[in-house]
Design a protein around this nucleic acid. Structure first.
Length: 269
DNA sequence: TCGATCCTGTAG
DNA sequence: CTACAGGATCGA
């Protein structure tokens, strides 16, 4: 489920529930999620650590440990990370769990198991942060910055928006939603989108992500896991064949970079 | 830039 | 049964 808004909601909740907690035992249940590192080594290095902080960068969750190591979690398609009140009451489909000294546990739930878990030293952490693109909800993500990035890319603008090394955190849903709101054809090369549309796109990205963060925080606020995103309903995503909310033309679905793109052939040009 | 791949679940 | 899934990476 997670793009930036959902990852932000998860991170805030994990921060609230786990900062200060002492881990007494760690278990990696799917060996491949720590590749290329050995899961046993990761477990051993985490045990006895205290969680010092929780941050989000793009779609990445970074849990700071008191030793200076960083636990890097990526939820990919179906991951979720949350604290449960009793470590013995595991949900199903866990990729990993971390038992606290107070009996609670931080669990990494993931039905598809594509999510990853890695331990970063200070240098690896810096590299990770340096490699990520602009935070779309930060000051650095200005209209000018977006224009400069777009000018340098000949990719279709939808794929450009999803490139995590340029802008960090947009995924398939919110990229499509932002392009709809800004009336841009997703197939158009990023460098060929007009300055006026790019300006509009910048506003749409920020507005849509801020709204979605709010919705996601509500959706994830219940104890345990998450619920359907209440409040946020996409205008184009997953609405193939339905009428455009702006011009009533039938929305269509195409494939870009192996993923579905939904858009309105009438008002996105 | 395309397609396959990592997995499991669900909808049609 | 097939197609597809809110992600990312790899090789052709």
């Amino acid at each position: 489920m997670p793009e930036l808004p959902e990852v932000e909601a998860v991170t805030r909740k994990v921060r609230r529930d786990s900062v200060g907690a002492r881990i007494v035992e760690a278990a990696v249940l799917r060996a491949r999620i720590t590749l290329p590192d050995d899961p046993r080594v990761v477990e051993a290095r985490i045990a006895a650590e205290r969680i010092a902080g929780a941050e989000r960068r793009g779609k990445n969750i970074l849990l700071g440990l008191e030793s200076g190591l960083t636990l890097h979690v990526h939820l990919r398609m179906t991951g979720n990370l949350f604290v449960i009140p009793d470590w013995r009451l595991h949900p199903h489909r866990l990729s990993a769990w971390f038992r606290f000294d107070d009996g609670r546990a931080l669990v990494f739930e993931d039905s598809r198991g594509l999510g990853t878990l890695r331990l970063l030293d200070q240098q690896a952490r810096r590299n990770m942060l340096a490699g990520a693109g602009l935070e779309p909800l930060s000051k650095a993500f200005s209209p000018q910055a977006l224009s400069a990035l777009a000018a340098a890319s000949r990719q279709p603008v939808k794929l450009f928006l999803m490139d995590q090394s340029k802008i960090a955190g947009l995924g398939n849903i919110y990229a499509a939603e932002a392009l709809f709101e800004a009336r841009i054809d997703p197939r158009k090369a990023a460098c060929s989108v007009s300055p006026a549309k790019l300006k509009s796109l910048h506003g749409s990205i920020v507005r849509i992500l801020k709204d979605a963060v709010k919705s996601a925080c509500i959706a994830y606020s219940r104890p345990g896991g998450f619920r359907e995103a209440e409040g946020y309903s996409p205008a184009v995503y997953d609405r193939e064949g339905e009428p455009c909310l702006r011009c009533r033309r039938t929305l269509i679905r195409i494939t870009q970079g192996g993923r579905s793109t939904y858009y309105c052939p009438g008002c996105q040009r």
